[in-house]
Design a protein around this nucleic acid. Structure first.
Lengths: 118, 118, 118, 118
DNA sequence: GTGGTCTAGACCACC
DNA sequence: GTGGTCTAGACCACA
């Protein structure tokens, strides 16, 4: 696994897990790889994975069953989507609009740039 | 001045200066507030302002006349805009598109969200 | 059976057995459910039940008759009560008092809170 | 600093800081010892202190000013007290009552045991 | 100087 | 086997 620099590694792993969940690759109730496995898979220290899992647990995206492992919660996909939506409308969208205005791009420019979307 | 956590303070100050330049509030040849004035204005350590000015100088957006102060260069607005454009197309736009896709927003949703633009 | 996180599962099961004993629901000489029955009842791994029973045996609260099962000893209720009393006076009570003081509760507040007791 | 075994060290340090806050030994706006200082003071690893401070920050008991340090928030004492009250009424008190009942202590016994309180 | 992240490795309790 | 905590030490960006 490769990591781009700006965000912490533990965050990037958390994000990638979240994306698997909303993509349906990780289902409700499914078990995540154990800390050690995940560490091996990603080529990262166990402590870093522990932090990833701990944060996911704090956000109720994952729960721990003692001595067994971490499991995707029921509300996981919902939690993730609602957080992402919130971030999008409160941060990304205004920031995007601000940049568009600064660059004096017009609606037509944008229509062109965003034509990749359905 | 308030600082949100993710970017460095020096960056945020640099950004705000750049925005004043492309908005025409700071003109070519105009003198920036002295380091200590700027520090007072922003409520920030002088070292931080020095770093801000140093970075702006590195990017040829301002020049230092020793013993006198920092001045906006001729090419400042051009430099800033070309950097911002580059960032926009290489970073912000792809990231924005990715988020839009994850949230399953349609072109029509976007048209609505971006109707504030001209 | 539900398990809250702080104590070990084996402990929680041991506690619940002990409470049945002092409540008279499990009498001297009575046979505990077999390990696999207990495991099924509580929805827990057999190893965990084995540990529970082993600890109870260590404390002389149950004895194992090989090939037959685990049985409540004569002194079980006495052992349990004396251990609980000891814990209560050395741990719970001082801790309780400390918390009451930190929250600045008065004797009258307490009288009110504890009025459910006979 | 000495640590008793059951809670994590990072928690015990967090607790002790909280107690200083509600005791008025650490005032609103006051700066905590830097991570390194606190580590030296308590004889504990810096990472452990980092975790302590991070948790306190998550609970809004403390805020970080970048490059400067951690500071006690306005609402710190309030947050702490309300959390402690909640814990007391939802956990400690019911647990205490349960133990008292199991041990068949009477109200008079308790009156005696709690006479140290004002 | 400050916080923050990551690694490597050890040790523990629990299932 | 599982998670969880702690240590020691390195390295980084920021004020």
């Amino acid at each position: 696994m490769e990591f781009k620099s700006k965000k912490g590694i533990f965050q990037q792993i958390a994000d990638s897990i979240c994306e698997k969940i909303i993509a349906g690759e990780l289902l409700t109730g499914e078990k995540l790889p154990s800390v050690r496995e995940q560490a091996a898979l990603t080529g990262v220290n166990q402590n870093t994975i522990m932090r990833t899992y701990a944060e996911l647990q704090r956000d109720k995206i994952v729960v721990n069953k003692r001595g067994i492992g971490y499991f995707v919660t029921e509300k996981a996909a919902g939690k993730i989507l609602s957080k992402r939506k919130n971030d999008f409308f409160k941060e990304s969208l205004p920031e995007f609009i601000k940049q568009v205005e600064i660059l004096h791009l017009t609606k037509d420019d944008l229509k062109d740039l965003l034509k990749v979307l359905k």
